[in-house]
Design a protein around this nucleic acid. Sequence first.
DNA 1: CAAGGCTTGGCAATGATTTTCATATCAAAT
DNA 2: ATTTGATATGAAAATCATTGCCAAGCCTTG
Lengths: 140, 140
Amino acid sequence: MPRTRRIPVPPWRDTPQRLQVLRALAARPGFSSAKLLHARMAADGCEVGLSTVYRALAALVEAGQADVVRDDNGERLFRHRGEEQHQHYLVCRHCGFALALDTDEIETWADRIARESGFADVRHTVELAGVCTECSAGPL
Amino acid sequence: MPRTRRIPVPPWRDTPQRLQVLRALAARPGFSSAKLLHARMAADGCEVGLSTVYRALAALVEAGQADVVRDDNGERLFRHRGEEQHQHYLVCRHCGFALALDTDEIETWADRIARESGFADVRHTVELAGVCTECSAGPL
DNA sequence: CAAGGCTTGGCAATGATTTTCATATCAAAT
DNA sequence: ATTTGATATGAAAATCATTGCCAAGCCTTG
């Protein structure tokens, strides 16, 4: 019983803005930057402050409803997390085509490392990038 | 999403500043931020501009003499790379302490993916980050 | 010595993210 | 319905790591 303790997540009020952010995020297939989401929402006619987008995204991440990674420029990219667990991809450096990978091995490995190291809250990032067959074949 | 890659390396002049940066980096056990290195060098009496520290670190990374990861704040942490090969680490998000990992499994896995996918020039990034035992015990 | 090129370092500029703060909104109590 | 206390919003300002700029310094070669 004493397993349930839900304090960390501060009050949460369902506001139209937060729903908008969630919808915008869910509507995107891959990872998107806050900036991009903000722009896209604006384009769709819903005016939401950039600060609010950031706050909503932070809350979503906190609540485990979104994943976040960093791109090469240190920018944060967010992705809605459905019921599927996180996934890794092999991305084409040239055209952006992404191939979903079977990552059981990696997950198991990462879990073991986390356990054996004694570190807390271990999270991992695995990124594979190459040039897909089409891009390496065709000119351009 | 433009890729960022520049840094002309051709001419490389060994300057005292660059050597200082390299020494400072090599002197640290784990990953360190540019800011920290700069401060530590200053404390050791060698005045080197922050810009120079950044440039030297970029050059070292480019030359494969240093590894770089990102902490939770998007800050870049650098680590000197000795003669050891490509290596992955479990980094403490809080103090930067890094634990070298046995990554045979990952390497094998990545190689297999590269082979099976047909992608060319596949490179990978694996980052594990958590909070080390000391930091999770201490304050915060 | 002179010219040209690589370096340096202080400072301005960037750009993402956060904070501030006055205002708006909600939920429950009155 | 009105008050009240707490939370949310957004525009602008603040932060902060990192990079760009550029005049001045240092080397190397002619």
